[in-house]
């Protein structure tokens, strides 16, 4: 919506468009840093690979990993909630309808995006926001984030003293049948997120090159370049 005309001297055909508002970019980078932290510390919690020598009092390796994990989980949770809130309060590119193939038109472009990514078609789908396939992938990864929060906070209830507000999350435990299963799901979730992350770094870089639309820079600056034919 908030299209800003390109400055004089820039490529005449491109319009500079403000796509990612500050909360979206902020949430994105907070999620990035918290997930890196959570994955490193979580991996250690799941698989303590360093063994401390000497007396116990001389070390606090797991203790530190756990506290960092728990602080990072607060950042992670708040960032994810901000992003979800912005899916309802933000501009059109941040909206939830960008994430789900809710219209027939988006369903069609879903197919097109799939064919393009798999080299079956040379026709790319140029969207200013997310294309339909990417949108659905982001919806999926957010579902995984919420599974991480549900299992993480369920695990945390064991450490919360009686009367603590954190005990509220105890209602989640029966959903997983028990804490060891919540732990397992939490652990599997980490790998799902890491696999996603690899692909997620690759595709924007790729399309920044292919479409020269600034998608890779956009998550820093908020702006993308709009070609005459591209969709909102």
């Amino acid at each position: 919506m908030s299209a800003v005309p390109a400055h004089a001297g820039e490529h005449a055909m491109l319009e500079r468009v403000y796509i990612w508002e500050l909360p979206v970019r902020l949430a994105h980078w907070l999620l990035f840093f918290s997930i890196v932290t959570l994955a490193v510390t979580g991996f250690y919690i799941g698989h303590p690979f360093i063994s401390a020598p000497g007396p116990a009092s001389a070390h606090f390796i797991m203790g530190r990993m756990r506290s960092v994990h728990l602080y990072a989980s607060i950042v992670f949770t708040l960032a994810a909630l901000v992003r979800v809130y912005w899916a309802f309060a933000g501009n059109r590119y941040a909206r939830w309808s960008q994430l789900l193939p809710v219209s027939l038109e988006r369903w069609r472009s879903f197919r097109q995006a799939f064919l393009f990514y798999t080299f079956l078609s040379r026709q790319s789908v140029d969207y200013l926001g997310h294309n339909a396939l990417a949108g659905l992938t982001y919806a999926g990864i957010f579902a995984v984030y919420f599974v991480m929060m549900a299992t993480g906070f369920a695990l945390y209830t064991v450490y919360a003293p009686p009367g603590s507000p954190m005990q509220w999350f105890g209602w989640l435990i029966p959903l997983f049948h028990g804490l060891p299963i919540a732990r397992l799901i939490h652990h599997i979730g980490m790998w799902v997120i890491l696999v996603f992350a690899v692909a997620h770094v690759y595709f924007p870089v790729l399309y920044a090159l292919v479409e020269r639309n600034g998608v890779f820079d956009s998550i820093f600056s908020g702006y993308k370049f709009k070609e005459p034919g591209s969709r909102e």
Partner: peptide
């Protein structure tokens, strides 16, 4: 150069595209 899909004609588009500047 890759083909960038053309935008469908206005009017045929769904609500999502309506209002595109």
């Amino acid at each position: 150069r890759l083909v960038v899909e053309e935008k469908p004609a206005a009017g045929k588009g769904t609500g999502e595209q309506a209002g595109a500047k």
